[in-house]
């Protein structure tokens, strides 16, 4: 390899390109997160007062659940505040509110997600290894039913990380509050509690585990450039929340979700050079449909 080639594909250059896509406030995500939560919460009076039937409420709540995680995910990486301390409340606000639909505590999600990034595909330390290593989609669905309870065992694994433990304990209280609210609601509105909240949140978590965890990480190795892949399937990119592009998020988490396609186009030569799994199949222009593989 000649020295000029090494220079072109240096990590500093890769980082510089990635940084240019890591500056924009992710307003679309904030809107989606707060918007879906507003729709989800409004379903309760609408269904209870018989303005809309329960089945319409259930379908709408399920769609809300599918859109609930990514806005929090951006917040977990600080992609609203962008390093500005006086804007951190936006990260917190969006994440707490959007996760209501999934009954997920923000603090636990942030703490465990950071560990997922640090130890992707490590059987003992990656908190999402159970779904990523599932042998079939059915296994993913079954395992994802455990919800955040599956993270409890990682309190022992990361017991020496005081920040992790503190965040986890904070989140556990929020988790208890969710449980208490659901248990109270089910006494007065049993079918509404089941079809507007419990079931949609389960569908949302299955969706999340399938597209955010299983497809991108299934049968991948550990290590930067190796732990996440570019993948194809039958459905257009917007059905899977663009998780075909998830590998670039693992390389540069600061790149905003809606800026990932442009970032990947710019970074494609670097990704091929580094041997990112599937990188040679990335189209030159990442639009919504070229990622469909028939």
């Amino acid at each position: 390899m000649d020295s000029s080639r090494v220079d072109i594909y240096s990590f500093a250059n890769e980082k510089e390109i990635a940084r240019s896509f890591s500056k924009r406030f992710q307003w679309e995500m904030a809107l989606i997160g707060l918007g879906q939560a507003a729709v989800f919460l409004s379903l309760w009076p609408l269904v209870i007062l018989n303005v809309i039937p329960l089945w319409i409420g259930a379908i709408t709540a399920t769609f809300c659940a599918l859109f609930a995680y990514l806005p929090s995910h951006e917040a977990q990486h600080g992609n609203y505040s962008r390093g500005k301390a006086n804007r951190r409340w936006i990260d917190s606000l969006v994440s707490h509110v959007t996760l209501i639909t999934l009954m997920f505590p923000h603090h636990i999600m942030r703490a465990t997600h950071m560990k997922h990034h640090a130890y992707t595909n490590d059987p003992h330390k990656d908190v999402d290894y159970d779904t990523a290593s599932s042998s079939s989609l059915l296994e993913v669905f079954l395992r994802s039913n455990e919800s955040t309870a599956k993270y409890d065992k990682y309190l022992e694994v990361f017991k020496d990380d005081s920040n992790f433990v503190k965040s986890f304990e904070k989140g556990a209280l929020v988790g208890l509050a969710y449980r208490g609210t659901l248990m109270t609601l089910v006494i007065f509105f049993p079918l509404e509690a089941l079809f507007l909240w419990w079931l949609p949140s389960k569908v949302g978590v299955m969706y999340l585990s399938t597209f955010f965890s299983w497809y991108p990480h299934y049968q991948m190795e550990t290590g930067r450039y190796k732990d996440t892949r570019f993948w194809h399937h039958l459905l257009p990119r917007y059905i899977n929340h663009s998780m075909q592009l998830h590998f670039v998020h693992h390389l540069h988490p600061g790149i905003g979700h809606f800026d990932e396609p442009k970032a990947i186009e710019a970074l494609k030569p670097f990704l091929i050079e580094r041997g990112v799994p599937g990188a040679d199949q990335i189209p030159d222009r990442v639009s919504y449909n070229p990622l469909i593989k028939l």
């Binding site: 449980r179 006494i187 049993p190 509690a193 089941l194």
Partner: peptide
């Protein structure tokens, strides 16, 4: 908190699944 942690599933079964099945 310790009680809820330990008996969470039992209470959930009784209250949540009981109420849902009854409904």
């Amino acid at each position: 908190i310790n009680h809820i942690k330990s008996w969470n599933m039992v209470w959930f079964g009784l209250i949540f699944w009981g109420s849902v099945l009854n409904a």
